[in-house]
Design a protein around this nucleic acid. Structure first.
Lengths: 191, 191
DNA sequence: CCAAAATATGGTCAAATGACCTTTTTTCCC
DNA sequence: GGGAAAAAAGGTCATTTGACCATATTTTGG
């Protein structure tokens, strides 16, 4: 997958041999719109890298409503951390929003790669650190921002996703009703 | 610090020598109520372990309001991840709620420990994984739960903190007004 | 290209929430 | 122990938000 080679080249100094080796262990998978990669209760067996398309990770609340935890567009990683780390049943779902292409590494293979390739490990740690920071930021926003501020922040953070996502998923990500989101957008048009 | 020895003994198989070595690199610090360990804009230089007392980490929103990101009681770790990892200015504050005792390791020292002691590294990775999972859970709750549900969940998760925290900090942690929290508690008494 | 489904907008209304204020109670610390 | 400060509770009111409904618009996949 050129996409992935490109990705690794720009952020690590892994050589061609290593990159090819990493790729050789990956399972290539094509996903149609709305196809699931992981369902609640299943074990998240793979590290997932999105080469093309767009995935979403979402949880289900007590009342059955779905809430988007993360969007994963091309060139990003995703998984259910807890489930993957311990190979236990997951509490979240991962599904394709657009037709997508992903690379999958079984945990044992990826663990081997991590212990063999320090550059890959460094990259992993960076991603984890970023993940934790992003989560904190999101919690802070969820706690303190008004719906309008949340939407503005979303636009700032993901300008490229704006046109690719149905509004109700954005609302779900922001934790507001679609009605409120529509109202905000109307108010903005009038300015 | 007995507290810390105890902690390490119960979750790793580090031997006495290792534990003493880890402890020998730690700075012991006493904190009074409301004393700050980190302020926004400063660099988070240390890994922090709380041996006694209770700390809080909080962020400041655009309008100046404070929002609690984490409570760290005795036997828990805390820090500003992003700031610590990159030794850059922090976006959050850490302060003592109760009179507390903490152990501090400068990043370089702790990094050395991590590369020397695989058991410590394993523990770290576990903590990180848990951290990420907790964050997800908290985001999901923030997005989907009613104030009452949030409070119930808080009681479930931190029964021991309930009596130690002023209500306005719980409200701040849950992202609801103190008024709403008071109302919920009144409603519960009447049952 | 077309029918069906998904998505977005709009209207109305009740309820929940926060802002602002005062009063009561508790805690702190000298 | 006592005075000051902090915390909790209570009252009132305007506003925001979501639920529920219908309708218009767009997208999708065969």
């Amino acid at each position: 997958m050129d996409e992935f080679e490109q990705y690794l080249r720009t952020r690590t100094d892994l050589n061609d041999g290593d990159i090819n080796y990493i790729l050789s262990l990956a399972i290539h998978k094509h996903l149609r719109r709305n196809e699931f990669l992981l369902r609640e209760g299943e074990v998240c067996r793979y590290k997932i890298f999105v080469t093309k398309g767009l995935l979403r990770t979402f949880g289900t609340a007590a009342d059955g409503s779905e809430h988007v935890l993360q969007f994963a567009p091309e060139h990003s990683w995703t998984l259910d951390v807890e489930s993957y780390d311990r190979q236990q049943p997951a509490h979240s779902n991962i599904a394709a929003i657009e037709t997508s292409e992903v690379l999958l590494w079984p945990k044992t293979d990826f663990d081997n790669l991590l212990s063999t390739l320090p550059q890959l490990k460094d990259l992993s740690l960076q991603l984890i650190s970023r993940n934790i920071y992003n989560s904190r930021q999101r919690i802070l926003t969820a706690l303190s921002a008004t719906p309008e501020e949340k939407y503005q922040e979303f636009i700032q953070s993901f300008p490229n996703l704006l046109t690719r996502l149905p509004l109700h998923m954005i609302a779900s990500y922001l934790g507001i009703s679609i009605k409120t989101l529509t109202r905000i957008r109307q108010a903005q048009l009038r300015r």
